[in-house]
Computed example of a mutant assay.
Amino acid sequence: MTWQAFVRHVADLLRRDGCTDVVVRQARSDRGIDITARTADGRSVAVQCKNRAGRASVPSADMQKFAGAARAVDRVDIALFVATCTFSREAQAIADLSGVITVNRDELEAWSAGVRLKTLR
C-alpha cells in the first residue's frame, strides 16, 4: 500500500471508531501531522502515519518532530503515532515522556481487524 493509501486507511479507522472532523492534511504543509480529528467526546487528535517496509523502525528524530508538532504547535489532547513497523527504543522513550500513543505493526493489524483503540474511547 502506498503511503497515501495508508494515511487514508488510518483516517477510515478513526471514523469507524467514532471520530469526527477527520481531515487528512496536505503532505507539504502538514507540520509533521498527517491527520487531525475529534473523538466522540470532543478531544482533539493528531496522527502521524509511517508506512515502512521490512525491518525498519521509527527513529527518534521522527518521534521528536511529531511530539513537538502535536504538543507544542497544535496542542492536541491525543497524539497518536501509527506505524507499519516497530519503534526504536529511543523513539518509544520519547513517546512515553511526551505522552504520544504509539501503534506498532501488531497493534495496527488488530485495529484494522476491528479492535477499537482504547485511547479513542
Rank of each mutant, 00 (worst) to 15 (best):
H9D: 14
T20I: 13
R55V: 10
S44N: 08
K50G: 09
A56M: 13
T84S: 15
R75S: 07
A11L: 04
N51A: 15
S57A: 10
T20R: 14
V22I: 05
F6D: 07
R121T: 10
P59Y: 08
A91P: 04
L14H: 00
F66W: 09
A72D: 07
F81N: 02
A67K: 02
I33C: 11
R52Y: 14
A61S: 14
A79R: 07
F6E: 12
T36I: 11
A46K: 03
T20Q: 09
K65R: 14
R28G: 14
A53Y: 03
V22Q: 03
V82S: 11
T2I: 09
T119W: 02
T86S: 13
F87I: 10
A53N: 06
G54A: 02
H9S: 14
D21Y: 02
L80P: 08
V103D: 12
K65N: 14
I35N: 07
V45T: 01
D74F: 08
A113S: 15
E90G: 01
L80I: 10
L120F: 04
C85N: 09
A91V: 06
R28D: 14
A113G: 13
R25D: 09
W111F: 08
A67P: 03
V7A: 14
R75V: 09
I94R: 10
C19Q: 04
R116M: 06
R75D: 05
S57W: 07
R31T: 00
M1K: 11
D12T: 11
A72P: 00
A91M: 06
I78D: 02
N51T: 05
V58P: 03
T84I: 01
C85Q: 04
V45W: 01
C85F: 01
Q4A: 15
D96V: 08
I33M: 12
R8D: 15
R121S: 09
K50T: 13
A91S: 12
R121F: 03
T102V: 14
L108Y: 15
V73M: 01
A56K: 13
T84Y: 02
D21C: 03
V73A: 01
R105P: 03
V115N: 05
Q92W: 01
V82F: 08
D41M: 00
D21Q: 12
V76R: 04
R16F: 05
V45Y: 03
T39C: 01
Q64Y: 09
R71S: 07
R8A: 15
R89W: 11
A79C: 04
R43S: 00
V22D: 04
A79D: 02
V103N: 07
C19N: 05
A37S: 03
V76T: 06
V115L: 12
Q48Y: 05
L108Q: 10
N51M: 13
A67V: 01
R89F: 11
Q48F: 07
G99S: 08
R16K: 13
L80W: 04
T86H: 06
A83R: 09
L80R: 05
I101P: 00
A53C: 01
A27F: 12
V47H: 07
